[in-house]
Amino acid sequence: MMTFALAFAILILVLALGIWFAAVLDGVFSRQLSGHGTVGLLAPFHASAVYLTQQRLRTEAPDQLNWFLSIAGYLSVAATGLAVVPFGPDLAVIGLDTSVVFWGACESLIVVLVFLHGWSPNAPLSLIGAYRYVAIGLPIMLPSMFVLIAVAIPAQSLDLRDIVASQETVWNVIRQPLGLPLFLLLGLSLTLRGPFDYADSDDLAGGTSAEDSGANRAGWQVARLAMLVGFSAVASAAFLGGYLGPVLPGFVWVIIKTLVVMAIVIGLSHLLVRLPVARMLGLIWKILLPISFLDLLWAGLVALA
């Protein structure tokens, strides 16, 4: 009971800190790259206060229930992802023997939730974003599944706790060099960012969130950042040795590594181009998927050697 309470407290801390940090970091990148703008440590709070003072508008004949569920669900899945990440040996909020499979299930739920978010307002631009996201969100999950199976091989377990423990001597990012880059692309898709932002992009004036206003808009934007935290924590556990590290307590290492992954994902989202859907589909099926097979083959051969 004590360990659960401790793990839960750390989860809330990581989530809150991560969301704030992600919002600030986004500002820093955008300032550095565009050459103007200001970065304030309190800016994320001010921006969300603006949304909270605004009215929540209704569109014509919306699907109110699903609109709410998509936002609440996206946030919950983000928190659930974080909950399977061990903050120390035997210190995970959800200690599950099959946590990698559980995370895989979370990933596929996100496609459904983002689609619902675009479907619910009953508006054309949102719906186009929803259609498009499904077209890309589904196939990009395939490489991620192979990559996650590959990290389970050296641990001989589908439990993230065992996967972290298996990296005592060498981290998976070195043992399986193709894994993390592929997994980061999935992260861009799960968080609707940059090159994989087919749902909420500029060419659709905000896509699935074009009709969001007031608290709904605040909720969706916070959920996107929470998803970035959840994803980055899973990536740090699967590839960067999670809580393993000298001197500092385990959960501090988790936080540091999570923040590093977040910074990389945010950087990539500002720097990489977004391909038209047909070209992206070709890239995923013809190039990324074969690379993920190679990653799995590599992991298998290393395990046999």
Binding site: F29, S30, L33, S34, G35, H36, G194, P195, D197, S201, D202, H270, L271, L272, V273, R274, L275
Partner: peptide
């Protein structure tokens, strides 16, 4: 093309003559 930050950089005077900016555009793919 999903590069709004680079688009905003074009608002800075003579950004298109800046080699660093051109490199970023090229590297973005």
């Amino acid at each position: 093309l999903g590069l709004p930050t680079l688009a905003n950089r074009m608002l800075v005077e003579n950004a298109h003559r800046d080699a660093g900016f051109k490199r970023l555009v090229t590297l973005s793919g």
